[in-house]
Amino acid sequence: MPLPAIPRRVKIGDAAAFAGTTPRAIRHYHAIGLLAEPERGSDDRRRYGYDDMIRLLWIRKMADAGLSLDDIRAGFEGATGIEQSLAQLEESLAAKAAAIEVQRAAVHRLRKMGSPLGLLSPLVSGRLHDLAPGVPRSTDLDTLLVTERVLGPLGAAAQADRFIVLATHPELRAEEDRLAEAEADLDDTVSPDDPRIEDLAAQRCAHETALAAAIDRSGLDEALDVLLDQEDEHAGEEEGEARMSTLEAIGKMPYDFSPARVRYEERVIELLHSADQDGDTSRAC
């Protein structure tokens, strides 16, 4: 039986049918640089030769194996043969597998530690891991998340000491809750000149002074000094992340504070600064 006429080049429809794909897919291969544009016939239509068909068959085999078109294209780039292409692909996929392992480890850590504790850097969450589940509170952890963004892991690690003391000193926790409730009452119905602001700011100053003393007695600040000595070791943790100054960060973080609450916060800062300058916190507050 004689062989059928064997064309030296075929149209895109025949090429697609032979390779098990569609003309639209082949046009996409051309568009993304995966398959070079072939010669065109006198009718200005693409004509595909033997080498083009081999390339199409390799593309289809790789795609059927689950490889993305981007990965396939990367494997072909600069390669002089299919063996080199496969070697490049294997190297690229190994790098991706390693990156996925890092991501899996991160997700596993988030699940194991819980959210939002797992969202904090190891430097911060490590200071809280000995506390009972649910301690500190989720609102405390949210605050640490914001602080870490503003001041970095070391600043948040320092603030974590505050929440550790609150979790282990019921009387301080009760006072914190009482003050937080009173602060929440400084809504838009309260004038910034209300005399209660001054009294409440003095109470907050005294409470923060008591907290600082408890932290000092606990020795937590000594452990923090060790972290400070290791600052260089963790300096690259947030490399590549856009960093802002503290004032810039505060200006971009929304807080639903009334004018009275803003004035209160300013007054607390003034009192604490005065206490720090005088060195006599009880008299300053």
Rank of each mutant, 00 (worst) to 15 (best):
R46F: 11
D225F: 01
P2A: 08
A235I: 01
A180Y: 05
L179A: 13
E241N: 08
L144F: 03
I269A: 05
P122C: 13
W58E: 10
S125K: 11
A180M: 06
T21K: 06
M62N: 10
E231L: 00
V135R: 10
L93R: 13
E198R: 14
E101V: 01
R127G: 12
D193I: 03
A31L: 07
I12H: 05
Y29K: 01
S125Q: 14
A182Q: 01
L154H: 15
F163Q: 11
G13C: 03
L120H: 12
L145R: 10
V150P: 09
I197W: 12
V150T: 06
E239W: 08
R46C: 15
E270Q: 14
S274H: 05
G75L: 09
L166R: 15
R9T: 02
S68H: 02
L56Y: 10
G114E: 15
D278N: 04
G134F: 05
A74D: 07
G240E: 02
A5T: 02
P122M: 06
D232W: 15
E83A: 04
L110G: 07
A105Y: 06
G236R: 15
Q88A: 05
A206G: 06
A201N: 06
I215P: 08
S115W: 11
R40T: 09
P170K: 13
L179K: 11
A99S: 14
T189H: 07
P133W: 12
D140T: 03
V262C: 13
L145Y: 08
S274C: 14
P38Y: 02
R243N: 14
Y264Q: 15
S42C: 13
E266T: 03
E231G: 02
L57D: 07
M53V: 00
L35K: 04
E183G: 15
A214N: 15
G236C: 05
V124G: 15
Q159P: 03
V190T: 13
P7G: 02
D276T: 06
V107P: 13
T143Q: 14
C285H: 12
S42T: 03
G49L: 05
G240W: 05
R162W: 04
T168S: 11
F76V: 00
V107T: 10
R196E: 01
Y264F: 12
T139Y: 09
S245Q: 10
Y48C: 02
E176Q: 12
L93F: 04
R137W: 00
E248S: 12
F257G: 06
Q88P: 05
L110Y: 14
A17K: 10
A15F: 00
L67Y: 07
G13H: 01
H129A: 14
R60H: 04
R111G: 07
E237G: 12
I100Q: 09
R173N: 02
L166Q: 07
T139M: 11
S121Q: 00
E175Y: 04
G251N: 14
T22L: 02
G152C: 00
V150E: 09
L117T: 14
T21F: 08
H234I: 04
S138E: 06
I6L: 00
L179R: 12
A156T: 04
G240I: 01
D225W: 00
S42F: 03
I215D: 14
A210R: 07
I164S: 15
D64N: 04
L131H: 03
L227I: 09
E265F: 08
T168Q: 15
L151N: 13
I59N: 05
G155K: 14
M1N: 11
L35S: 03
R8E: 00
E175I: 02
Y29I: 01
